[in-house]
Design a protein around this nucleic acid. Structure first.
Lengths: 128, 128
DNA sequence: ACTTTCTTTTACGTAAAAGTCAATTTTTTC
DNA sequence: GAAAAAATTGACTTTTACGTAAAAGAAAGT
């Protein structure tokens, strides 16, 4: 485990710009250390960035991503808090289930297209 | 099967605004008929709207959604075309696979959170 | 016919999520 | 310790995906 990552190391690893990481910091999604004014990212930050980008790929907004991250941070002690948390988890799970269904549906349609293509290819080979 | 849907029927069914549907028309994603200047949507359009919204939920851009739709429209005859098409299908499939993986990963993390919550709840019941 | 409710076009506005540019530090390297 | 390379901040711009408002043309109920 390394101690710190520089900003450019991470931009290269994840294919994002420094502006993007700075933006995520402004949004409170990550809190890199500072040495003077220079940002020093720990592996916790690196992991968070991974999660942010995952959320982004899934079409979650920054706000939604923040919600998810706050869930991870989360389980404090109190009972009411815990119930709230579990409600949130259930909501996110539902959103993800919807997305998964959307993916299955889309894949199914692509399967059809693929089959149609293959059928047409077969016809061509026989010589329509 | 009904012949036509009005724009507001569809906005209500899908929970989108008229502006949104007109925007999709401007973008060439749907092509409703016209009686005079009034739009008349057929079930083909209705189906396309479903697909557009599915893509939207998955975080695809309009451009990407258009690509998918054009794939569906597609299999013309020619060989080169078919190969291109199958390449595109493969690409979309890869994107969807990535998203699916992202979903599984996120769900796994939510499972952890859930377990942590349950464990803490159990502690509380015993009386920490 | 009259009012109400829809619908259309045109055009400007906006929020989210960065990109870009410029002007400084800061850090690194020789 | 000076020059080069990397990082920072702040401001402005851009793109996407619509929102909103205005003005006017149809449709439908009464």
């Amino acid at each position: 485990m390394r101690k710190y990552y520089t900003i450019t190391e991470l931009t290269r690893e994840f294919g994002v710009s420094t502006r993007t990481l700075r933006f995520y910091e402004d949004e409170g999604l990550i809190q890199p250390d500072r040495r003077g004014r220079t940002r020093l990212f720990r592996s916790a930050d690196r992991h968070l960035i991974k999660e942010i980008l995952r959320g982004r790929r899934l079409g979650f907004t920054i706000k939604e991503i923040r919600e998810i991250i706050e869930i991870y941070k989360g389980p404090p002690g109190e009972l009411g808090q815990l119930e709230l948390m579990m409600t949130r988890v259930a909501q996110k799970r539902a959103q993800l289930a919807q997305k998964r269904q959307d993916i299955e549906d889309t894949l199914a349609e692509l399967d059809n297209v693929d089959e149609a293509c293959l059928a047409r290819l077969a016809e061509l080979r026989v010589g329509t």
